[in-house]
Amino acid sequence: TSDTIWDWDVVNNRMYYNEGITKMFGHEITETGNIADWWKANIHPDDIKTVSDALDKAFRKERQNLQLEYRFRCSNGTYKYIYDRAFVIFDEQENPVRIIGAMQDITYKKEEELRIARAIADAQEQERRHIGEELHDNVNQILVGSLLTLGMAKDKNAGREKVTELIEAGRNHILNAIEELRKLSHEIAPASFEKKSLKDIFETLLEGINPSRQFDIHFEFDEAVNTRINDDIQLNLYRILQEQVKNILKYSGANVIELKVALCENGVRMRTFDNGRGFDTRKERKGIGLNNIRNRAESFAGKFVLNSAPGMGCEIIVEIPVQLS
C-alpha cells in the first residue's frame, strides 16, 4: 500500500510506522515514544485540537472508528494534507490498548480544491467588474443623455415641435437603457428553467450574439436533455456555453459555430466548435475562461476535453455524468 500505516501501543506509549513514514514524509524512523511530543512536533498547530478531540472521544468509548483530515509535517518542514482512518481496540475492561491507522496523502486534492475556489472567486470578481463597467460605460451614459435631453425640453424658448422631439428622444434613451439592463440581467441569470427549456435558453443566447448574422451557427439539441437532466446541471451547461461564447467573440475571429448537446451512455455531452484562429494548447494562457469551463465540468465530476491548434479552430467537449431515468 502507498499509505503510511501506524500502530499505536497505547499501554506502552509506543508508535510504530511502516516504510510509508519515510516515503511519504521523509522521516527516517520506524517507531517512537512520547507520542504527545511527536504529534506536537509534526501535526500542524491549527490541527492539533481536532486530532486531540477525536482521540479523547475514542478513549471515552464514544467512537471506535476515526476519520480525520489534518496536516502533517514532512522532514523538510513542509506540510502535507492527510486523510487518516483509524480503528481503536479495547481490552476486556473496555480500556483502549491499541489504535491502528492508515494515513493517505490528499495534498493534491486539497490544493486542487483551493485552486478551484480561487478560480471561482476570480471569475466572480471578473463578473462584478464586467457588470460595473457595463453600468458605468453603457447604461449610465444612456441615462445621462436622457437627462440632458429632458432638461433641454424644459427650455421655455423651445417650440412645441422641438419639445415633442426632445421628449421622444429622451423616451428612446430610457427604452434603450431598459433594453441594456434586460440584456445584462439575462447575462447574469438566465430565464427560469421552469418557464423555458434549456434548448430555448441556448437558442436565445446564440441569437443574442448573432444579430447581424456574422456567424453561421449549427445547433443540434437532444430534446431528452430538457426533461432528464436536473436544473443544476442544466444551469452549469448554460454557464459553460456562456463562457465559451465569450471566448469565441473575444479571441477566435471565427464565422462558424457548432453546438451539439445530447445524452450519452453515462450522462450528457456538450460539444462546441468554432473555425477561428485556434491556439497551441501546450502554451500557458493568461485568461481564466477555459479554466472556468474545466472547473465547472469537474465540479459535477465531469470530463473536459480541449482540442485546438493554430489555424485549426477550437473544439471543447464536456461530459457530465447523470442518473438517467
Score class of each variant (00 low, 15 high):
N138V: 07
Q141R: 12
L143Y: 02
V144S: 11
G145K: 03
T149S: 10
L150A: 04
K154F: 15
K154D: 12
N157C: 12
N157Y: 12
G159Y: 06
G159M: 08
K162V: 12
K162W: 14
A169D: 05
A169C: 09
R171I: 10
I174E: 02
L175F: 09
A177S: 07
I178M: 08
E179A: 12
E180N: 06
L181N: 03
R182M: 11
K183H: 08
E187D: 11
P190I: 01
P190A: 02
A191R: 12
F193I: 09
K195M: 14
K195G: 14
S197Q: 09
K199A: 05
I201W: 01
F202V: 01
L205G: 04
L206G: 00
N210C: 03
P211S: 06
S212D: 15
R213W: 09
F215A: 01
F219G: 08
V225E: 01
V225L: 03
T227M: 06
T227R: 03
I229S: 02
N230L: 05
D231M: 11
I233W: 01
Q234Y: 06
I240P: 00
I240D: 01
Q242L: 09
Q244E: 14
N247K: 09
I248C: 03
V256Y: 03
I257Y: 02
E258G: 09
K260C: 08
L263R: 00
E265F: 13
V268E: 00
V268Y: 05
R271H: 14
R271Q: 15
T272G: 04
T272V: 06
F273Q: 00
F273Y: 14
F273A: 01
G276S: 04
G276P: 00
G276V: 00
R277N: 05
G278T: 00
D280W: 04
T281L: 15
E284F: 11
E284K: 12
